[in-house]
């Protein structure tokens, strides 16, 4: 989440800067980055097995003209499936 992140056209630089980072999974979202200016939230998809370089991430956001103010991390949740049969 970042302060002032409320103009989708101004904010496309955020996607441009973050999507260049090597730990970003560019196959998900739009080039690995989802922008939601309604709540000033940026969601970044991380490649499996990679850990994000937070300094590089924050620098990318600042180069795009915004200030990161809070970060949420969603850790991978393993989904277990159990077959119950036909009946």
């Amino acid at each position: 989440m970042r302060a002032g992140f409320d103009c989708p056209s101004c904010a496309i630089g955020v996607r441009k800067m973050i999507s260049r980072l090597k730990f970003v999974d560019r196959k998900r979202f739009n080039k690995g980055v989802e922008l939601d200016t309604t709540v000033q939230l940026v969601t970044v998809s991380i490649l499996n097995g990679e850990s994000p370089d937070l300094d590089a991430l924050f620098e990318a956001i600042e180069e795009a003209g915004y200030d990161p103010v809070r970060m949420y991390e969603l850790e991978v949740v393993r989904l277990k499936i159990r077959e119950l049969g036909q009946s």
Partner: peptide
């Protein structure tokens, strides 16, 4: 540029 909560410019 300036960035405020919910407003920039």
């Amino acid at each position: 540029y300036f960035n405020l909560d919910g407003r920039s410019g």
